[in-house]
């Protein structure tokens, strides 16, 4: 068995560490207020979809990814982070069971080589591990460095998901759909595919203000908004989107049970936005508890995530042990 790269850098003088910082910063918000153009209606409206006949594709593929990380050592005050990303597509056929169709994973070391002593640099290079470099301005303060490493890892995860999703599209049967956890608009292929859906659970970006925002965020259960086209900065791809409320939010919070759906920017999408929404409403069952995000996490996506977590190498997951100083030798 070859020694792991972590052992190699420790042998080369890195100070061992085992540290998973609090995710206090939360998920990085990739987007902020951008605005949107009406597609289905000029001003945002709401539609009841509970009585619409749901689209019921026989086979659906679900794509999700995970990331795991922890600081495994320090060279001076520069953290060396071990990161792991994985993505999988699980297909659901007529027997309603999910089976893995494709998966990919990648282990990376994240640090800034230039900030490390020569032996450490050599050890890292010799170990052959994939290296993600932090920018110079990120490594002055360890706290910043760790946040930057986290963003690097998220990028790596999204890239992996995108790559797997595109690979999966190529193999998608004529009546099969692909449901992605997150946005489609990252990928040209995914955005352009007539049977790909993005289901977004976190609402970092806002597309509306005033009464329209209120309409969107107070959507009753079993309702959707009009289809709109998010405005993008720069050369972002065209995509159609709408909000859908899976569970009644009253008594919880505005975002409870709220998802945003992305689909191909096309008149067909507008025509079947209600049927697609009704389908997603059916996906509320079974519940994805005990996950805390169960109000907007589809069971099938939860299943992909559970699969990926159970496949994660044991030593990537931080040992749950205490952080008391070690005693004895």
């Amino acid at each position: 068995m070859p020694r792991s790269w972590v052992d190699a850098i420790l042998a080369a003088g890195a100070v061992p560490a085992s540290y998973v910082p609090d995710a206090s910063a939360g998920r990085t918000d990739l987007e902020e207020f951008t605005g949107a153009d009406g597609v289905e209606d000029v001003a945002l409206r709401t539609y009841a979809v509970a009585d619409t006949r749901p689209l019921a594709p026989g086979t659906v593929a679900f794509l999700d990814g995970i990331e795991q990380w922890r600081v495994v050592g320090y060279g001076g005050v520069t953290p060396i982070v071990r990161g792991y990303v994985a993505a999988a597509v699980r297909r659901r056929g007529p027997d309603r069971r999910l089976r893995t169709a494709a998966e990919a994973s990648r282990e990376v070391a994240i640090t800034r080589l230039e900030s490390l002593a020569e032996p450490l640099r050599r050890a890292l290079a010799a170990s052959g591990v994939d290296l993600l470099e932090l920018a110079e301005e990120d490594v002055g303060q360890p706290g910043r460095a760790i946040q930057a490493a986290r963003r690097e890892l998220e990028r790596a995860r999204l890239a992996q998901e995108r790559e797997l999703g595109e690979r999966c599209l190529a193999a998608l049967g004529p009546d099969e759909w692909l449901v992605v956890d997150g946005v489609l608009s990252d990928s040209a292929a995914l955005s352009a595919h007539p049977r790909a859906l993005g289901v977004i659970k976190s609402h970092g970006a806002q597309y509306f203000e005033g009464p329209e925002l209120e309409r969107a965020l107070t959507l009753p259960a079993g309702h959707r908004t009009s289809v709109f086209q998010p405005k993008r900065r720069g050369a972002r791809r065209a995509i159609y989107s709408w909000y859908l409320r899976l569970w009644p939010w009253e008594g919880n919070d505005l975002l409870y049970g709220l998802v945003r759906v992305e689909a191909h920017a096309d008149a067909v999408t507008v025509a079947r936005a209600s049927a697609l929404s009704a389908w997603l409403l059916r996906e509320r069952s079974p519940l994805s508890t005990p996950d805390a995000r169960w109000d907007r996490l589809l069971y099938a996506i939860h299943d992909v995530e559970t699969y990926l977590r159970s496949r994660t190498p044991r030593d990537v997951i931080a040992p749950p042990g205490s952080r008391l100083p070690r005693t004895g030798s």
């Binding site: 996906e283 519940l287 299943d303």
Partner: peptide
Amino acid sequence: VAAEGDPARAAESPSVRQ
């Protein structure tokens, strides 16, 4: 909750649990 109290609907879930 997922079947909204109707046993018949429980069988209609699009996914079967693990």
